[in-house]
């Protein structure tokens, strides 16, 4: 069975480490915050200028001056700091964020990522995605392995306009966890009940499969 969005978030959360500063993108990455392992302390960075994002507020605590990068009302946690957009992107671009999790339309064997623009459709903008992929050393991309019609999104070469090039090394899809190195996807784990054959069939880029591929623990 392909992973649910929640299971994908749960799997990504296993890459968190105590004391990490983490930037979570919109969509599945946001859900990772719900699966921070017990006893582990991580600080969430929001690109609009907040380090130490807390949960959504109670109705009575809503504050128009306190939002996240998705423009949702949020709270701060203990130890939070707030700063300007300049400062926020200095820490992103300067490589100070320990882990970045973001979505994508396509990735390829060279570590290129396309996530912001589909020609012919309305272009809304890249927001902070290009800065995040350019600045982070440690990125996990969460995405669907293939389109609904079965067409692979893990390619030899991205077809859509890029968000960044040569910057992605780890990908979690609804079918598998893979690493990118040496011009190939390396299959590391498969979703429970998903066969290597299915992953092969849905991976268009070069795929290297070890003798044994463990099932993911989710």
């Amino acid at each position: 069975m392909a992973l649910t969005r929640e299971q994908m978030a749960h799997r990504v959360a296993r890459e968190l480490r105590d004391g990490y500063y983490v930037n979570l993108g919109i969509g599945i990455p946001t859900l990772v915050a719900n699966y921070v392992p017990e006893g582990m302390d991580v600080m969430l960075q929001s690109e609009n200028g907040l380090l130490g994002m807390g949960p959504f507020p109670l109705e009575s605590d809503i504050d128009a001056d306190l939002i996240n990068a998705g423009k949702q009302t949020v709270t701060t946690r203990k130890g939070a700091s707030i700063f300007s957009s300049v400062e926020s992107f200095a820490m992103i671009r300067g490589g100070h964020v320990d882990l970045t999790v973001l979505g994508a339309f396509e990735v390829d064997v060279e570590g290129n990522i396309a996530s912001w623009m589909v020609p012919g459709k309305l272009i809304k903008g890249m927001g902070g995605a290009m800065d995040l992929v350019a600045g982070a050393g440690n990125i996990i991309v969460t995405m669907m392995h293939a389109a609904k019609d079965g067409e692979s999104k893990l390619l030899s070469r991205c077809t859509l306009p890029l968000t960044g090039c040569g910057c992605i090394r780890r990908v979690l899809t609804d079918l598998a966890y893979l690493e990118i190195a040496g011009g190939a996807f390396h299959l590391k784990e498969r979703a429970p009940g998903v066969t290597v054959a299915e992953i092969r069939a849905k991976t268009a880029g070069r795929l290297i499969v070890p003798d044994s591929v463990p099932e993911m623990q989710v």
Binding site: P55, F56, P57, L58, E59, I62, A64, D65, I67, G70, K71, Q72, T73, V74
Partner: peptide, 12 residues
């Protein structure tokens, strides 16, 4: 006015 774009809350 300080309009809020996405009013999100958690249950009490």
């Amino acid at each position: 006015e300080k309009r809020i774009e996405k009013r999100t809350t958690r249950a009490a």
